[in-house]
Design a protein around this nucleic acid. Structure first.
Length: 117
DNA sequence: ATCCTGACCCAAG
DNA sequence: GCTTGGGCCAGGA
């Protein structure tokens, strides 16, 4: 492995790992039957503007996380086809109701306890 | 360095 | 309800 690559990893890995840990912690804190948007998860974890990274993390690894509780702005499910259907089904099994294509956010918006982060 | 892409977001029209 | 254009960040080609 080339030296510059090693240095690159040492320099950046810790930060992104911290972020991912914070994201996971925030996601795990979403109550059953509630949802939060990518942007809200990022902000609650202390990284506003990092909503795309929340998505990236979930795409990489969602094992053991209540990933179905993370939705797009306005309660929209962003996964396509099968994956989208699965997310909707998982949410409905938790009692989450939809208004058409979106989660009824007025009823199911999770409120993060910001002092925990 | 540049360009593209992504389980994004938002304001406009 | 759209669609568009802009903004955001990091990783890969």
């Amino acid at each position: 492995m080339m030296r510059h690559e090693v240095e690159r990893r040492l320099r950046r890995a810790p930060k992104s790992e911290q972020r991912d840990t914070a994201f996971q912690k925030a996601i795990r804190s979403i109550a059953k039957g509630k949802v939060a948007t990518y942007g809200q998860v990022a902000a609650a974890a202390g990284y506003p503007l990092y909503h795309r990274h929340v998505a990236q993390l979930l795409r990489r690894t969602h094992e053991g996380l209540p990933w179905q509780r993370v939705v797009g702005a306005g309660g929209e499910i962003k996964l396509k086809r099968e994956a989208g259907m699965e997310q909707r089904m998982r949410l409905e099994m938790e009692g989450v109701r939809f208004r058409g294509k979106r989660v009824d956010m007025a009823e199911h918006q999770h409120r993060f306890k910001t002092w925990e982060f």
